[in-house]
Write a protein that binds this DNA or RNA. Structure first.
Lengths: 184, 184
DNA sequence: CTGACCATGTAAGATGTTACATGATTTA
DNA sequence: TAAATCATGTAACATCTTACATGGTCAG
């Protein structure tokens, strides 16, 4: 089993969900495509880590498969938790462009930075919304160590801080660029 | 060509380098293995984007291949720069564990957070060292938009800020955990 | 009336990791 | 004396992305 498998298993453990839902709830902290989720879910089901119930859909949509964790899955998940996590993977094409920015016009880079800021502002809004939803649903309970949503709550705080930091950095770079352009 | 190819090309454009060197200079912002670098470098060379010169090594080390960019490579690189970058990829197993932390002992999570802090402190030191080296080599010039190292300098500032933010977040979570554990 | 949302999935291809091979020199 | 550094590479495997298929409902 790989990290994604455990990640999905962890979300299923908290709340039985469909593949579609899982992807939505991963948004903001783990990027994944459906074509990766669905085969993995069915593999985990075959290995007895989960079971599913079909939920009929209106219209011609395929039935939802609502996966739940089994005791075997839960055991595996608990074994995984204390193990030292793999180092974070980061690949960000924007940073590669920043690294090479001397080859292009300052104006081109300014545009890229501005688009970056806009994209991160959207993410900040998304994270705030996630936090708001959790606060609304669970009240001050989310901030309780014993809450099953405590981890998720902390996680979105992390995303929020990082994305705000990214915006601040972009604005800092832009201010340097602007200062030097105007003093020429 | 993919993002990694352009990333390598950008570094080669600034300074002719070997695969080994490239990996070292990517550290901190783009994780890659040699087994990915070497085939890609030779592919780019075959496509005429780079050329290389052999540099003899002492001992029984294989000769260094010092790659330089060609005008064809430079043209391609300049076309890539203004295009909207692919969204950043992030997959961080630690975050997946945080998300599932309700399934484990607070003590287990405390350990994971403490190890996380230690790992990020090392990275902070690495970034500061990178920044120091650039400042030493180029003086105030690195902070000049016209410097070919300006982008790299900004990049390491970004890494520094993010890693410091991560440490601050971890400490914040730990403080909440400790508060609730002691008040029980 | 165009695109986003809902919902699952397969197939092909691109990308990334791990294991292996070589082996002297330096650092802890 | 064990491990890290230097230096390039191949092979096998795992993971991830893109393109395709289906098709009704809802919002702008």
């Amino acid at each position: 089993m790989n990290s994604l498998g455990y990640t999905l298993l962890g979300m299923i453990a908290r709340k039985p969900s469909s593949g579609y839902e899982l992807k939505r709830n991963l948004e903001g902290f783990w990027h994944v495509e459906y074509s990766q989720i669905y085969p993995l879910l069915s593999k985990m089901e075959q290995e007895g880590l989960t079971t599913y119930e079909l939920e009929e859909q209106s219209g011609n949509k395929p039935d939802k498969k609502i996966y739940s964790i089994t005791s075997k899955g839960l055991t595996l998940l608990k074994e995984w938790l204390p193990k030292p996590p793999a180092p974070p993977v980061q690949r960000d094409e924007f940073l590669a462009k920043v690294n090479t920015m001397w080859l292009t016009e300052p104006y081109t880079m300014k545009l890229l930075f501005e688009e970056r800021i806009a994209a991160f502002k959207k993410q900040v809004a998304h994270h705030k919304e996630e936090l708001r939803v959790m606060e609304e649903q669970f009240g001050d309970g989310v901030q309780d160590l014993s809450s099953i949503y405590f981890g998720r709550y902390m996680l979105y705080h992390q995303r929020l801080r990082h994305d705000q930091e990214e915006i601040a950095w972009c604005e800092w770079v832009l201010s340097i660029v602007n200062k030097q352009l105007s003093s020429k």
